[in-house]
Amino acid sequence: MLTFTIRRLILAVPTLIFISLVIFLLLELAPGDPMAQVPLTVPPEVKEKMREALGLGEPMHIRFWKWIVQFFWIEPQVLIDHYLGTSFSQGDLRVISWQTRSPVMDIVVQRMPQTLWVVGTAYVVAIVIALPIGIYSAYRQYSWFDQMGTFVSMVGFSVPPFFSGVLVIVIFSVQLGWFPSIYDTTLVVDSWDSFVKQLQQMIMPVMVLALQITAQLSRFMRASMLDNLNQDYVRTARAKGMSEYVVVMVHVLRNSMIPVVTVIALGIPAIFGGAIITEQVFKVNGIGQLLIGAIQANDLPMVQTLTFIFAVLIVLFNLIADVLYGILDPRIRYD
């Protein structure tokens, strides 16, 4: 297992380099000019100097190499410096956003808590809702509960977040006035009142995100349970006189959870990408909104770094899912 993990980790390196190259080349073709906002009265030679100051004067491969060095060598040093108080990165040039002229990673770190709070809560809520639904609808296959579950998850698949989000805003904040339609990130939770406020503003985005995830997870849980419920070992367990609860919740559930756990792991990076729309609808200024803003403002270092972070997450969680599969299922041996 350890050798498998190490081999996969080593294999992930060329994958990530290839992805970063694809992203870099895509952005290289960008027609947008970061100097477009500069007034026309600025003479061309000054403009050329400014361009060079942004690092645009160098040829393509040198800039790609510099970005790699900045991202993989200097940024981790900054992180170490931040935690240990050392000064490895003193004087090194970091990845600078063209929009704000400040390091990209600083902005990402600022935006991360909002995304993690909203998306993370949604994921946890979805798992808590989806698993019991999946278990029960598989146990009572074709019952009215199962039919309802199928319909609700089909709706969850089909209603895009930009519609369900707008719909809950119309119902709960325009008509009923229960929840605010805009997520206020400046709110500091230090008392009971502010905690209630935080809950109120989180409910709608969390529910919209959770609906989608629940739909997928509960279908998956149901299918996995159905696969196991007809197995011989279930009949054996029943024949031994075990209670129905033990048969379903211990024997079947443990075996059914194997694929579901890996699906949960695989879904985590997709949630970061999928939350772009939800963040936009509810004006949560998280990572997704940062990306949209950077794309619209032609801020290439920011776009490149963010897309690459998403790619790293996807590759990482793919690896985690594979390793988990091997750990949970004794029939699977990679070595």
């Binding site: 994958t15 992203i23 952005l27 990076p269 990408g273 996807i314």
Partner: peptide, 23 residues
Amino acid sequence: TDLFLALPLLPLLLVMMLLFREP
């Protein structure tokens, strides 16, 4: 195929929209 599956698709789509719209 694995490489394509590892790409963050929605961000890339957005970037492609931005880049190739004009030409």
